[in-house]
Design a binder for these strands. Structure first.
Length: 356
DNA sequence: GCGTCATTAGGTGCCACATTCAGGT
DNA sequence: GCACCTGAATGTGGCACCTAATGAC
């Protein structure tokens, strides 16, 4: 398939002028936000097309997972690449990205922010557009222009042997989502475990939750046991909760629970197509460079701390501390008095009158 | 529906400590 | 190449108090 020349991102199959943001499985087409909204709002049938967000790293393949720590949607290849880089990255919790259906971007918002839930579909669309514009601008800053990278439908990473894993990964991924769905149906809890800040699958039976996470990790090619780094799912999850909530600057709000992913189905088949041969031309150095740029960008964007209440900040700054911890004013006063009396005694010993 | 009061959850900065990483031997 | 040590870098917990949100009336 010939694509319009673009230096860095998969072009929209419809307008061929904007970078694609979603992949429509029914149409087998990569679409930009506006075309997606236009096409899938045309009629009821079209509105039921399932779309998945395009990988934010390579921008060339449908995203399969959302990394909560990095706040990024990643295709299987990028996910595997990035999260096998180091032990810390391995701990990032990723959840399967559910397809978007209907003419809204609610799932995107769910995946990419924990901000106030917008119920109005039109407003959602606008917000989605703004977000996409930001994403596009962001992507331009870290994606490398490389020859022949806009000619395929898949991710731009050389996968080679990895692809073999990904095929299995992809097929088993469906198992994963099917099991997840089955459980949700059994418990009548719609997508509870994918809730905004609720990184920990709160209501999942321990054995099932463990099984699901183990399977997920297995699919991602992550092995904990052999290196003695094995952690229980609870342990790792608890760890990730803190990382994600602090490092991402995600501020839980009262409306967070409303951000539940609402897709009735969660079938994911994002690696159906074989990898684009040209996309495999990227050297390991280029891949690493991309990953590094991606991480840098995410770090800059997400690690900024958000101050919601300046008044609280002001109080916190004024608040007395003992070894960095907030201290009770009484204790501080008592300590100050003790110091004061000690000082007086000490000073008096030398016959010096303290001047306060 | 509106106002008042009580209760509660969560946000805030800084430091000590823990953990991880890199480099040297 | 491996193990061990050391210092640097990074991540995390915990504290008290105040405010916003929430519920009851």
């Amino acid at each position: 398939m010939m694509k319009e020349e673009s230096n860095w991102a998969q072009a929209c199959d419809t307008c061929r002028s904007a970078a694609c943001t979603v992949y429509c499985r029914a149409d087998s087409a990569y679409l930009c936000t506006s075309c997606d909204a236009q096409i899938h709002a045309a009629n009821r049938l079209a509105s039921r097309h399932e779309r998945v967000r395009v990988c934010q790293s390579c921008e060339r393949a449908p995203a399969a997972f959302f990394c909560k720590a990095d706040a990024a949607s990643l295709c299987t290849a990028c996910d595997s690449e990035i999260h096998s880089a180091n032990p810390l990255a391995r701990r990032h919790q990723r959840v399967p990205i559910l397809p978007i259906s209907g003419n809204s971007y609610s799932s995107m918002e769910t995946n990419h922010s924990c901000e106030t839930t917008v119920t109005d579909p039109e407003t959602r669309l606008v917000l989605g557009q703004e977000e996409e514009d930001e994403d596009e601008a962001e992507a331009a800053s870290w994606l490398l222009p490389s020859s022949g990278k806009n000619s395929g439908n898949n991710n731009g990473f050389s996968i080679g042997e990895e692809y073999l894993n990904l095929v299995d990964y992809s097929s088993s991924d469906k198992q994963f989502t099917d099991q997840s769905n089955q459980y949700q149906q059994d418990c009548n809890v719609p997508q509870r475990s994918y809730e905004g800040d609720g990184v920990v699958p709160l209501q999942i039976d321990e054995s099932k939750g463990h099984m699901l996470h183990e399977q997920h990790n297995f699919q991602l090619g992550i092995t904990y046991g052999s290196s003695g780094v094995h952690r229980s799912s609870n342990e790792s999850l608890n760890h990730m909760v803190h990382v994600s909530s602090i490092n991402l600057g995600v501020v839980p709000e009262s409306t967070t629970s409303d951000a539940t992913v609402s897709h009735p189905r969660s079938t994911i088949a994002v690696t159906d197509q074989p990898p684009d041969p040209q996309a495999q031309m990227l050297s390991p150095m280029e891949r690493e460079a991309r990953v590094l740029r991606y991480r840098e960008k995410k770090k800059m964007r997400k690690f900024e701390k958000t101050i919601r209440y300046a008044s609280r900040k002001a109080y916190a700054e004024k608040r007395p501390r003992i070894k960095g911890r907030f201290a009770k004013r009484k204790e501080v006063d008592a300590e100050a008095n003790e110091d004061f009396s000690t000082m007086i005694t000490f000073d008096n010993g030398y016959g010096i009158v303290p001047s306060f």
